[in-house]
C-alpha cells in the first residue's frame, strides 16, 4: 500500500490549524492566570500549542519522506466514499428533523428510506421490511422494555 502524501499533508495541516485556533481562542477570550493559580485558559493554551507543534512535526516528517520517495504518485489508499458519506449523513439528519415534529415511527421510516439509497443491493422490498422490523424493535426495546416516553407518531399542525 502506497502512502497518499496529500492525505498526510492534509492531516498535518488539520492538526496545525486546529492547534492554533484552539490556543488562540484561549489566549484571546480566557484568563490565563499564573502557574501557581491557573485561570481557565492556561491548560487549553498548552494543549493547543502542543497540537500545533505535533501538527508541524508531522508535516516535517511527511515532507522528508516525500522528498525521499522514489515515486510519490497519488497513492492508492482507501478511496473516499462520497456517496455513502452523503447518504448516511442525510439519513441521520432526516431522522433528527422528522422525530421532532412527527414522532418516532415516521423518523425511522425516513431514516431507512434515505439509508437504503446507500447500497444498490438493498431493494425497496428489503428496505420496507427493515423499516417494519426496526419500528417493532424500537417499540419492543425502547418503549416497552425500557419504558421511555417516546412520541410514536405526531402531527404538529
Amino acid at each position: 500500500m502506497y502512502i497518499d502524501f496529500r492525505r498526510e499533508f492534509a492531516a498535518a495541516a488539520a492538526l496545525t490549524v486546529f492547534g492554533v485556533l484552539f490556543a488562540a481562542f484561549a489566549a484571546l477570550f480566557l484568563p490565563l492566570g499564573s502557574f501557581a493559580s491557573m485561570g481557565p485558559g492556561m491548560f487549553p493554551i498548552i494543549v493547543g500549542l502542543l497540537i500545533f507543534i505535533l501538527g508541524v512535526a508531522h508535516g516535517a516528517v511527511t515532507f522528508l519522506a516525500y522528498r525521499r520517495a522514489i515515486d510519490p504518485g497519488e497513492g492508492n489508499s482507501e478511496p473516499i466514499q462520497w456517496h455513502s458519506l452523503v447518504v448516511v449523513v442525510s439519513a441521520m439528519a432526516g431522522f433528527s428533523t422528522v422525530i421532532k415534529f412527527f414522532g418516532l415511527i415516521p423518523a425511522i421510516i425516513v431514516l431507512t428510506a434515505i439509508a437504503s439509497l446507500g447500497s444498490e443491493k438493498l431493494t425497496i422490498r428489503h428496505a420496507f421490511l427493515i423499516a417494519i422490523g426496526l419500528v417493532l424493535l424500537a417499540w419492543l426495546v425502547f418503549v416497552w422494555a425500557l419504558g421511555l416516553p417516546f412520541t410514536l407518531i405526531d402531527w404538529p399542525f
Binding site: M92, S96, I99, L111, A115, L122, I130, G133, L134, L137
Partner: peptide, 26 residues
C-alpha cells in the same frame, strides 16, 4: 451488510435521542 447498516444507523439515532430527547445531540 446491506441489511445491517440501516439497523446500525437506527441504533445510533434512537439510542442517542433516547438519552436526552435532544435534537442538539443528534
Amino acid at each position: 451488510y446491506y441489511i445491517l447498516y440501516p439497523a446500525i444507523l437506527f441504533l445510533v439515532c434512537i439510542g442517542l435521542y433516547s438519552v436526552n430527547n435532544s435534537v442538539f445531540d443528534m
